[in-house]
């Protein structure tokens, strides 16, 4: 049974359409993960002992365990505590939480490299902490961590394929279904790989565009 290019082409329309599900889930997760990541970072900077203690255990757990297990936990375990989420929502929640932890950890490193000067100046001008975060710290922080945020975006996109295991009808699952129906499992996988490569390319391209615009504004 050799490789059959026409089977790849035949699978592309359906797999491509289903991959759009990955795309929009990834967009939602990116926004949520960034918001959560910023939130975690601000909360951690307040240095409440107990809160930071809990946060550091949570961060270590998320960083130390597979995303697949975290997806299972959100999907199978949350209903036991009364949170009955549909697979898509549970999956989006799991991936967003996962990425927000990586984002806040990266922010931690980038914060340590920021200059003191602008913050001291802003404090001298009697700006409130909230304004200092919004106007002074976050703009610099986002600009500096943009490459990392883009690569986290590609991780998020790839992670959405894992939601196939909790029955979300995204590109990879549809590819597997086509493979099962046609008895040619290999070619639809190539089709879905192509779809992901294209989406990945778009994401990286958007990142480059944002970076260039940021560079222009900074110049």
């Amino acid at each position: 049974m050799g490789f059959d290019l026409s089977s790849v082409v035949a699978a592309l329309p359906d797999v491509g359409a289903a991959s759009l599900t990955n795309a929009w889930m990834a967009v939602i997760i990116c926004v949520a993960a960034l918001a959560l990541g910023i939130g975690f970072t601000v909360v951690r900077s307040l240095k409440y002992r107990v809160v930071n203690g809990v946060m550091s255990v949570f961060i270590s757990f998320v960083r130390g365990t597979p995303i697949l297990i975290q997806i299972f936990l959100c999907y199978y375990v949350l209903p036991l505590v009364g949170l009955d989420l549909d697979p898509t929502t549970a999956g989006i929640l799991a991936i967003a939480l996962n990425s927000s932890v990586f984002i806040t950890e990266n922010f931690r490193g980038a914060l340590a490299a920021l200059d003191d000067g602008p913050i001291e100046a802003a404090t001298a001008l009697a700006l409130t902490p909230a304004m200092i975060w919004m106007l002074v710290i976050l703009p610099q922080l986002l600009r500096r961590t943009l490459p990392m945020l883009v690569s986290e975006g590609t991780v998020i996109l790839k992670n959405t394929a894992l939601l196939s295991v909790i029955t979300v009808a995204e590109g990879f699952r549809v590819a597997q279904q086509i493979g099962g129906a046609t008895f040619r499992p290999f070619e639809p996988l190539i089709a879905v790989a192509i779809c992901f490569l294209v989406l990945n390319l778009i994401l990286v391209g958007v990142g480059v565009m944002v970076e260039r615009r940021g560079a222009l504004r900074a110049a």
Binding site: T41, R44, S45, K47, R49, N52, S56, R108, G109, L111, A112, A113, L114, D115, D116, I119, E120, T123, P129, I132, W133, I137
Partner: peptide, 20 residues
Amino acid sequence: SGRPTGGIAARYLTLTASKP
């Protein structure tokens, strides 16, 4: 990693009170 950050800015630029 990092450098000693003192004073006001440390309130924002560090996330833990003592050692990371």
